[in-house]
Design a binder for these strands. Structure first.
Lengths: 223, 223
DNA sequence: CGCGTCATTTGGTCAAGCCAATTTGCAGAT
DNA sequence: ATCTGCAAATTGGCTTGACCAAATGACGCG
């Protein structure tokens, strides 16, 4: 499988691997841009784009005229910002919580809500056919279900958890997940969820939602 | 005052301003890279670096061969919850979510965690006997269970939901709830939850937690 | 009217070079 | 011998210019 992601994403991942593998530990200085670019077989501008991505997610620090330094990766200490959740944690949380919420939703699911859900699936299929990322449709599907419970807290929690995936932290990994095949699989699973809701079968809906989010997490990590 | 930050950061901010100001709304396409670079007075590589930063934080989406598009900017972000939720909504949310979480916790409940939970119950009984409000013990009980899953997101969510009850909004109603009898009932229910966890019975724990939080919500509202 | 083809548009990447900040090292003074 | 200061080497910051590849749209053919 050829990696079709943008070069800066691939390059950022390769640098992350160098650090994870231990070639460069926290505090160490990476090779100079010119040298590192040649070593990775990419041009300097492309490497610089990758370095900016790594700088944003806190992997490295760039000091003008000095060098590129590896930051302490395993430390939420210091500032108030604590975004230390791993993708697997995130998807487990979504699987457990959204499965519980959809049980509430299934019982009182209105025809109007079902219509909206069908619309998101159609729009999602359209996005995929046109090679667009159906992120907004995916988001809408999960959010509509949560909102249909009538409890705004459910909607807020689902919304926050969903958006967490697109935080700067997970940006580097994001590219893996968003292939056409992955979205097609997600769409199929959405259809299964909708079918259970149309049948007003809470347990089937719960199972379908749980299955969808665990599979989604697997797709996200497996690449 | 001259801005000494890297050019890509300054440029990213300027593009954010263009979007915030309304020049380009969600879904709109920004000018082509070459044109936008000239318009902002920077080189194309520098603009590209800025665009990567904006792509990572979810402000824009870059489609190869097509253009640069503004994404939905509706993300106040953060876990901060605004007011507007009713107590019944809050307690329903806690009942559903904490019931789902305790199922995960029951499976892998360690003896060490059980010891901590017993300690909170003893401290809670002590507080009640001395006519103190055992709010902290109550909080600790629920939080320890969520933390025992090993998933920090569960702990965060439970924490936020719990603290919501003590927001200014619900302060007026709170007094009714906090009678000695109510706390005694809560303590009894906590004991029932702990018993299910000691038996490592996920379904019994789920039922006990759900029962506790719905009863707690009832006590909160009935006065 | 439908549909395929090709030119245009637009992002993706590379190469080479110069500027600016930092570091380094050596020479001279103490 | 040690300290100081300045210049050269190192390193990141940024620009120009060019070419490739994907997406789009217009045009002409059937």
């Amino acid at each position: 499988m050829t990696d079709t992601r943008r070069l800066y994403q691939q390059t950022a991942d390769r640098v992350r691997q160098l650090i994870a593998r231990g070639d460069y530990q926290a505090g160490a200085r990476l090779p100079a841009e010119r040298e590192l670019a040649q070593q990775l077989g990419v041009s300097r501008p492309s490497l610089r784009e990758a370095l900016i991505a790594l700088e944003i997610d806190g992997t490295i620090e760039i000091r003008m005229g000095s060098g590129i330094y590896v930051l302490n990766t395993t430390k939420p200490a210091g500032n108030g910002r604590s975004l230390g959740e791993s993708p697997s944690e995130l998807m487990q949380a979504r699987a457990v919580i959204e499965s519980a919420i959809i049980v509430q939703a299934a019982a009182t699911m209105s025809e109007k809500t079902l219509v909206m859900l069908r619309a998101t699936l159609n729009a999602m299929a359209d996005d995929i056919a046109n090679t667009r990322k159906p992120i907004e449709q995916d988001r809408a599907f999960h959010l509509i279900i949560a909102e249909s419970t009538g409890n705004t807290l459910f909607a807020e929690i689902v919304e926050n958890l969903f958006d967490e995936r697109h935080s700067p932290l997970s940006a580097g990994i994001r590219g893996h997940f968003e292939t056409a095949d992955s979205w097609t699989a997600a769409l199929t699973e959405h259809h299964a969820i909708l079918a259970a809701l149309e049948a007003r079968d809470p347990l089937a809906a719960q199972a379908a939602m749980h299955s969808h989010l665990t599979a989604s997490g697997r797709r996200w990590l497996e690449n």
